[in-house]
Simulated assay, not measured.
Amino acid sequence: MLLSRIWHRKLCRAAAGLFLLLWLIFPLEASAGEPQIEATSAVLMDALTGQVLWSKNPHERLPQASTTKITTAIVALERGNLTDLVRASKKAAEVGEASIYLEEGETLTLEELIYALLLRSANDAAVAIAEHIGGTEEEFVNLMNAKAREIGAGNTHYANPHGLSAPGHYSSAYDLALIARYALQNPKFREIVATKEAVIPWPGKPWDRLLVNNNQLLWGYYEYPGADGVKTGYTREAGQVLVASATREGRQLIAVVMHSPNRYREASLLLDYGFEHFTRRVLMPAGKTVAMAPVSRGLRDTVPAVTAGQVVVAVPKDVPAEWQQDIEILPGLTAPLKQGDKVGTVVFRWQDHKVAVDLVAGRDIREQPWWLAFLQAFINIFHFPWVRLS
């Protein structure tokens, strides 16, 4: 009997040890599908709606390394001409670390330099672009910071166009996702970041420059089905950083990991989680009248407030979601109004998720002629409530 009890205790201890070992080896099994991310900060965002589907320390300010170049590229694409000839300065040629070995006086097109910027992560290309667009590197950095503010990236500040460590140069996982979402709306940016390799000239050499995209989600061991961008980053201070995007069945997701032990694996885990656990749902069609907005000084005193676009949300596949609808009409609407002018917003909320779409005027509202406005004022003064001029 005693021997039996001893063996029973040993078996229980062995089973408990085995369970602990399996839990340590396979931690994902214990989290009901939640991604296990070791990165200091991470975000998973739906590219269409901007909803955050999963996050860890999303607003923590951290060094962003070469993911800086997303903003460098978008400022260059919006302010420059792809066929512009850009002459490399001595300062650009001397920038260290990742480069395409520009020489002082060498000339390439802006398009070629943006390819070098986003595929090879060339720091010399970043400075050459900055000086060409901004006149000086410092003025270009001011443009970058203005663009970040415009996008809504409140925890981002740039000190240079390339991302080498510098005081006051930081971003957050949420901001990087926000910036990438904005940049991916530019067709040329989308084309470049999805390119696996490209060839650009190397003046004075018997061969051209081969640019291989640093983002290994596009190729090689970590290749991810549907991957279509965006940008890698690494410095000793920042660690491994990755802004990644992938599209499946028309759904595009953006994953960001900062200071990660394995950026490709962790970004893949986030993307898998998003594709497996979320789907999209249409809450309201475009052109739907949701309210009658009051208008002053018009031939009509109200205008139909209609949705400017389709309201689409990302929702968990297995969880019913009841979205609360709030209609916000702009105060003080005054004629004349043209069909399509913004008159308000409709906001949908569920838990921490929020999606909004503009409400626009469903028809033109002409301004009252002066004599009609005068007559209406006269009627109001002398209290003839049964008379209505509209």
Rank of each mutant, 00 (worst) to 15 (best):
L375E: 13
K91M: 08
V230Q: 05
V343C: 08
G332F: 03
T67V: 13
I192V: 14
G250D: 08
F189S: 09
L53D: 02
R280P: 01
P63Y: 13
R87I: 13
A32R: 14
V295W: 00
R281I: 01
A122E: 09
W7P: 00
P385I: 01
E104N: 09
A177P: 01
L389C: 05
V315Q: 04
E111W: 03
F26A: 12
Y224Q: 11
H169R: 08
L218S: 03
R363H: 01
T107G: 03
E38V: 01
L375D: 06
A16T: 10
A116Q: 10
V360G: 09
G309M: 03
R79V: 00
S165Q: 04
P187L: 05
T67R: 00
V86A: 04
F278E: 11
V315L: 07
H353L: 15
A198Q: 15
R209Y: 04
P187G: 02
E249S: 14
G96V: 01
E34Y: 00
W370H: 08
P161F: 10
V312R: 10
V127Y: 04
A153C: 13
L53V: 11
A16H: 03
I100E: 12
E97G: 00
A308V: 03
T109C: 10
L28C: 01
T83H: 14
Y221M: 10
S296M: 11
A173Q: 05
V199H: 10
I37G: 06
Q324H: 14
S55Q: 15
Q368K: 15
P167W: 04
V43H: 07
P261Y: 12
A125M: 10
I327F: 12
K56C: 01
Y222T: 05
N81W: 10
L337A: 13
D326G: 00
S121M: 11
V360E: 07
P331G: 02
N213T: 13
R209T: 07
S260H: 04
P294G: 08
